[in-house]
Nucleic acid binder design. Structure first.
Lengths: 113, 113
DNA sequence: ATTATATTCAACCACATGGTTAACAATCAC
DNA sequence: GTGATTGTTAACCATGTGGTTGAATATAAT
């Protein structure tokens, strides 16, 4: 039965399901960028990029500051931390399951030395 | 552009963008369940639930074992670890700690490719 | 052999998504 | 003011998504 703020996660995960949007997030992790900055690497219209940015904004993954005619976008850490929180529930589970694999990798590493 | 294995993440994030599917993942974190088990909490046809399960499967978030006429689904830890790996790049935004396990997982993932 | 159970598949539908182009709005530079 | 720059909005299109129902498949039970 779905949890309390699942509607948020819907938007967050949906936003992140597109490679263009993930790449934009990555760019914003370096520093703030304008809409055209974000759009420039992609072979698509500015309107299309603008839509992507709006999806990220609606998911609260980024924030926008309008200064003059330029819109400056920056990452909103809280957006991604929502994913982290969601994931943390499962983290124990899969870290446990991968324990054996870690050991294997460690052994392999020791052999190299 | 994006990165190499983005297509994986497309599927993973898309799969997780639906509340029904996230709830299914949550159920599977407890223990394995059959398709009807997974479907039963929801007010939708079995066929619809079956589709959801297939989306999770294609994203490699779960695995299926057919035994007789029942299909037993279990969580695939590696699926979620992909999300964690992706997320770990951004973790510095809300925490300073760097988990050693992340590094191990990253290495494991690199070796596979 | 018949019937019930577990699940998928195929066809269909309404709506969402990601892209386009063209028009609009606001700001800056001259 | 005129014109260029930055960005959004609107209308449109092809494809994808999540749901339905009904038929098909495979196995289990009697």
């Amino acid at each position: 039965m779905v949890n309390n703020h699942s509607y948020d996660l819907d938007a967050v995960f949906h936003a992140l399901s597109d490679p263009t949007r993930r790449a934009m997030v990555r760019q914003l992790a370096e520093h703030e960028r304008t809409v055209s900055d974000l759009a420039s690497p992609y072979d698509m219209s500015l309107a299309a990029a603008s839509k992507h940015i709006r999806v990220l904004e609606r998911a609260k993954l980024i924030e926008r500051t309008v200064r003059g005619r330029t819109h400056i976008c920056k990452l909103n850490p809280k957006g991604l931390s929502r994913v982290h929180k969601w994931l943390s529930y499962y983290e124990r589970f899969w870290t446990q399951k991968l324990d054996a694999l870690e050991t294997l990798l460690a052994e392999e590493d020791n052999k190299k030395k």
